[in-house]
Nucleic acid binder design. Structure first.
Lengths: 148, 148
DNA sequence: CGTTTTATTGATACTTGATATCAATTAGGA
DNA sequence: TCCTAATTGATATCAAGTATCAATAAAACG
């Protein structure tokens, strides 16, 4: 929430693009800066609205690059647009508040263990998994969102 | 796979609509029949293509009714259109072949147990979860799909 | 620093998935 | 059969996202 420490994630996003041999432009910098400043997950359209000076196509392209580089997670959770969140943890899962839409991350070793034990029951070779936990977040539980 | 037994699922789909007070029309019957005959998951557009005699709007409406009634699962797995599969098991998860897109179902009690144990770690109240396992299905492993 | 090359941008048009509209039709009860 | 309300589906519209391509800007080179 506070911004009194240098954030290593910023470097990660820029590095992710550099590693792909992409140029550092002002449009991309604007997108990356906005992504960092979002502590919540966001949609592509949200970024477009927040960054009217950056073209829609560029916003979508930059997001695609970052997902491609593994720096962003794409969460196809809603009926409409998918959400994106910075991939802070190597392998993780997401919590999604059913009321306010806030997205969180967590790791749990048992989930990975379950995956391995499932191997026997499943008709093929497991190459990945995804899990989303739907919650009512503490903020919403405490009534912070009752006006909605 | 074979069709030598009466299929109780057919009744479920029709009953699902009846329970919502919806009329039995020929358009809806066509959609339900097509859904039953699909042993794989399908997209709305696939149904539209398979049923040119039924209007697009009706296909989408019928799918929405069935999802709403819990008779279909909506799987927002792909970049494009979500897929739907008949909900045969009360609570379950899905396997998705990364190569051919085939969707399967499974239940695993450990997954549910993990959910309960996660309650302590998670910043809110768990109200649901979803899990998808990405596989290469046996058919694809055996090379049945190499032409793609 | 200026020139050159090449990636990038972004307005626009388009594609796709899905919903709203609404006159014509049809189901199903009286 | 008739009546009424639900349903249909052609069409328009919306929303998310991509392709196009002339203009622009980054960075490599001298």
């Amino acid at each position: 929430m506070t911004s009194d420490t240098a954030n290593p994630i910023e470097i990660d996003l820029f590095t992710a693009l550099e590693d792909k041999g992409l140029r550092k432009t002002s449009a991309r910098s604007a997108v990356l800066t906005r992504i960092e400043s979002a502590n919540d997950a966001f949609t592509a359209e949200q970024l477009c609205r927040d960054l009217p000076e950056v073209g829609r196509a560029t916003v979508y392209r930059t997001i695609r690059h970052l997902v491609d580089a593994g720096a962003l997670c794409k969460l196809p959770i809603l009926d409409g647009a998918p959400m994106y969140s910075i991939a802070r943890v190597e392998h993780h899962h997401h919590t999604i508040c059913s009321k306010c839409g806030a997205v969180g991350e967590f790791r749990h070793s048992t989930v990975e263990r379950v995956m391995r034990s499932l191997g026997k029951e499943i008709d093929g070779e497991i190459v990945g998994h995804r899990m989303e936990i739907f919650i009512i977040c503490n903020q919403c539980l405490s009534g912070a969102n009752d006006g909605g």
